[in-house]
Design a protein around this nucleic acid. Structure first.
Lengths: 212, 212, 212, 212
DNA sequence: AATGAATGAGAGTTCATTCAT
DNA sequence: TATGAATGAACTCTCATTCAT
């Protein structure tokens, strides 16, 4: 899968001042990604983030109003980069199975890639908190998956159980198997993807057709 | 299922002082459960917890050394109450399917029960972090499920794919479908359990037989 | 010098209850001596002291009203054990020089002795606070020395300068040379005593005769 | 002696911010001097210090990392202002006696001057702990005195006893006689200096010549 | 827009002391 | 009298945020 497509490429405004603004905004986002990855959301401080950018403390607040907002922006950023892929896959219209297979592959690739920048050094001894996507755009990923499932239902290419539950289950499998995958060396995206895809597709097929 | 069996019943020492100690320890645990539920682990403070008990600030530290420790105790508490149930179900030996069905039922019942104390008022606008059980006893739940799956594999009553992935997937489904279940009114444990059970059992059956 | 004479031997009351009381009081005092020696007055806590006695926290307050009071009692104890020696030396009436010589010898011996129990492990990195005798009984030691000097003045066996200054200077020399002595290995009480005695006696002799 | 020379005059940076920084740093130092003087090192809290400056609590930590550090800075400050004087006196090369005489005079003047800011109101009933200069720069004062004595020994203008003991004794006399001096009204620096100088010079002369 | 020192609320924690047992 | 858990004031220190420059 083309990794380039996963990279956010904001439109570059022409004015020099604007370039700096965009660059700073991106620098803060990148620093936040790294810092959240290293320290976790809780332990991370705005100072940690801003220190990494070389900017001054106050400058942070020219771009984001709070730690919370930069976190949301980060989640947005991830989702914004991943959602088009999902949409593209659906648009290809090769059917539901193909969609799941490709989506899982894309996600696990995305995960393994992010992982190299992110989950480096996690302070042991603290309860590990899994950042779950209850941010606006993460919810959008969820919605996208749910819509794909609903559509499949409508087209009779898929089962007819509760789409919310189905989406939740699919995402859950992808996420947690993905996590397990990242714990192993070497990271075997193909094997994990095969497992998750099979589990999802077969699991969905077996669902009762009437749940509404 | 008898909900009473899920309730921790510590032996009550006879002395009045000892009674108070046990009561206080439990009160802190209960308050912590409520506060973590309302604010999330990270936003919760030791003061929030102790304030809810009516005890003095310093008293917290007579029982737990830190927020982290009370969190671990809480996870232990939950897992300690749930793990015997899992073990009991396995011991009944009615086969893997039966085990999964009953376990899911037990878990969702447990969840709906806990929920009444827990997930009340969540301040919107903060990123919600899902507290994932990487605490010792939560890991024990995971291990128990994995062992059940491994055993099933050995007995050829189950599939032969990677037990870690299988356990992860089963737990993921149970957890996230459980979460969705809690978001709806009325809370329909039976429906959610049916969905999750089917998804898990069918999903597992479809897994490739060669992974060992 | 007879070390036994330096040991406080409180009169033992006959009743058993009283014996326990006296024993506890002494135990607390001993523990306090050790703890102040190890941690310094500031860092030492009442809990540190009471823990070392095996008694309960509340029991401390049956004997002393505060950390401060036990400190004062400790200083009293030291001074009470040392003061009779000073008095005895004066009473022997062998003259001022002899008094100084013997007193310094007694003090340095006392110091070297105490040192073995006391000044063990001092947490480096903290400013070292020299506990100076502004406690009632430490002031009594000062007074005793000053009186000895004043008497010597009256008897024309000594100089006639300001007795307060003279006492301050004598005590200062004894204390600080004593401290330096304790920093060396092996601890050479004889050498240090010879130095301090000479410095004091010669120094006093050179003082102007008229200061009042 | 020109008291002005004892006053620290840091270079004033031109920017307004820098001026404020320097002023704040000095204000904290001054407040710390006063608070340590009033309450003693151990009883003093960072809050006491910062409250006196009118600055916010957190601001303290922009300048010093702890109470300990501000204490060290204070000791440094005092020693840094006094050490050049000692060095200057030695450089004048008027011999050992002259050095002692002038040094004592300088010290007692310094003391009386500092005293006006320092030792105001001491809450009675607490054990008074004399802050002894085991900070780096206070050790430098000690070293300076010891070197002066050692040099005097080398030049045969002084006695040949143990220089460490000699330095300890000289400093002890100066310090404690100085303390006594401050307790009297009016403060008689000349009288105290005469006493201490005599005591030191005569005392040293009488020391045994063979100790090296 | 960028800076970075100042702010001050509030976190975790300690500990001398009290008091019911 | 001994106990030891409860108390709560006070402490050190952090850090998101503000604001004068």
């Amino acid at each position: 899968m083309p990794q380039a497509a996963l990279t956010a490429v904001p439109d570059l405004p022409s004015g020099k001042r604007e370039q700096t603004k965009v660059a700073n905004r991106q620098a803060i986002l990148d620093a936040a990604r790294a810092v959240f990855g290293e320290l976790g959301y809780e332990a991370a401080t705005v100072r940690d983030i801003i220190r990494r950018t070389g900017l001054a403390a106050g400058t942070f607040y020219n771009y984001y109003r709070s730690k919370e907002e930069v976190f949301a922006a980060l989640a947005d950023d991830g989702a914004r980069r991943f959602n088009p892929i999902l949409k593209g896959l659906r648009a290809q219209g090769h059917g539901f199975e193909s969609f799941v297979r490709l989506a899982i592959g894309a996600y696990f690739g995305f995960l393994a890639d992010e992982h190299r920048n992110w989950v480096a050094r996690r302070p042991a001894g603290e309860p590990h908190l899994h950042v779950q996507g209850e941010t606006p755009e993460m919810a959008a990923v969820f919605a996208e998956v749910r819509d794909a499932l609903a559509e499949a239902v409508a087209e009779r290419t898929g089962p007819m159980a509760d789409p919310d539950y189905m989406a939740a289950a699919c995402i859950a499998i992808a996420r947690d198997v993905g996590d397990k995958m990242l714990e192993r060396r070497p990271i075997d995206t193909a094997g994990a993807a095969a497992f998750a895809t099979s589990m999802i597709l077969t699991g969905l097929k077996g669902l009762p057709k009437a749940q509404a």
